[in-house]
Amino acid sequence: MDAELGATKSGGGSGGMQRFAIVLTLVGLIGVLIFYWQVFFWVNTERTMGVAQRIFYLHVPAAWNAELGFGITALCSAIYLWLKDERLDWAAVAAAEAGMVFATLLLIEGSLWAKIAWGTYWTWEPRLTLTLLLWFIFLGYFMVRRSTDNSEHGKRFAAVLAIVGSLDIPLIHVSVLWFRSIHPKPVIMSADQPMNLEGDMLVTFFTALIAFTLLFLGLVAFRYGLERSQALVAQRLRRERSA
C-alpha cells in the first residue's frame, strides 16, 4: 500500500494482510452486487409475505455477522486478558466494530420487518430486544475504550465488559423470552420461522450469506490492519519522545 506506512510496520506479513483484506472485500462486494441483482430482478416473490419477505435475505446475514462479530470480540477479549497479546485486542476491536455495524443494520431491518409484518416499528419481540441490549453493551464497550487516559486500561476494561456481556447474554435472553411470555402476545409471525424456501430463494439466501460474510471478513481484516498501524505509530511516537 503506502511506502510511508509500510516503513512503520515491523516485520512482514502486514502487506499480505492488507492484500488479503482488499481481495476479500472486493470478492464480497461482487457477491453483494450479485445478491442485489438476484433480490430485485431475479428471485420470485414469496406468496404470503409478498415483497416484504425480501428483507429476510438481508436480515439473516446481518444477524449472523453481528453474532459472529460479537462472538469473536468476546473470545479474543478473554484470551487477551489471559495472554496479553496486543494482536488479540486488535482483533477484538475490529470484530466489535463490525458487529456494531451489522447489529445496527439488523435493528433497522428488524424494525422495518416488524412494521410490515406486525404493524409497528418496535415490538418487544425477544430477539429484537436482545439485539438492542447487545447494541448498548457494545456501545459501552467503545465508550469505555475511549474514556481512559491509559489505553492499556481502556483495553482491559473493554475486554472485561465484553466477557461479562457475553456471559450475561444467555441470562438476558432467557429473561426477555420469559418477559415476553407474561405479556399479551402480538400476532407474531416470526421472521425466522422455517420457511420452505424454493430453489431460487435458497440460492439468493446463500449468496447473501456468503457475500456478506466475505465482506465482513475483509472489512474486519482491514480494520485489524488499521488498529495495528495505529498502535505501531503510537508506539513509535512514544519511543521518539522518550529518546
Binding site: Y36, V51, I55, A62, L105, L112, K115
Partner: peptide
C-alpha cells in the same frame, strides 16, 4: 420498507 432496508445496508 424493502428499499430503505437495502439502502441501509
Amino acid at each position: 420498507h424493502v428499499f430503505v432496508g437495502y439502502a441501509a445496508a
